[in-house]
Amino acid sequence: MANPLELRRRIRSVENTRQITRAMQLVAASRMRRAQDAADAARPYAQEVLGLMQQLVAATGDDLLPPMLQTRPVEHSAYVVMTTNRGLCGALNTNVVRQAMEDIEESRASAEVSLIVIGRRGRTSLARLVPMLAAFTDISDRPTAADITPIARLVMDGYLAGDFDEVQVVYPEFVNTLTQRPTSLRLLPVVLPEDADPRDADVIFEPDPATVLEALVPRFIETVLYETLLELTASEHSARMVAMRAATDNASELIDALGLTYNKLRQAKITSEIIDIASGANALAQRA
């Protein structure tokens, strides 16, 4: 480290790194806002679907409920684990994978487990641990409702065919910019929250409640998956933004420290040169 030339080169390289991390930070910030907007835009539909589900379930007799609303003993569980395609987003994927493994270990005590992974990161880290049914790694950065259709089809068909008796989703819930909480949610069989204010019971259903409900359930499943996917996207970009801000700050600190060392070195060199000259001049003066 004593070589000033080496130090200068090092400073320049850290400055380049800082430029990249700062650019990534800005890009992530704008993508995070976009992802949050998409999540906000999706909320009205999700709320209406939930409300309508509750109304239809109340109007349909218990024995007429579609299979996706009926619970059965769990011998085989499917897990949908949502991770990102790209890295450099802090501990986001590690946390989701850890949560998923905890849940899966628990399920394994009493049932077989199959895995459906979204995102390259999760595929890499979970591939060795659990038999994988499918992996979706081509979901775009701006997911649309259509992106979710193949995943929804897969879990619904599997559930209806009896391949598995429940479907769990593990995803990073976007709490705020600094916090993304790994969360588990049971997708199938559908269990609805209590209706806070039950709507008027005197409703005409065309053709009848059970038929409409049967048609609505797939939309509900897709909606829940789409919402978790939007949470994943918002979480990814905020985690990346925070990670890149930390990297930028670290780079700045490093540049300061290296600059200090470099200046000290430079000054020491100048001082020693002055001493050289001064002592040389002194020696000459004494001889004269």
């Binding site: 998409a38 999706a42 009205p44 539909y45 209406e48 649309t144 409702a145 939309r219 897709e222 789409y226």
Partner: peptide, 9 residues
């Protein structure tokens, strides 16, 4: 009248 689709109102 309110029309909502999965992606937006």
């Amino acid at each position: 009248l309110t029309v909502v689709s999965p992606e937006r109102e």
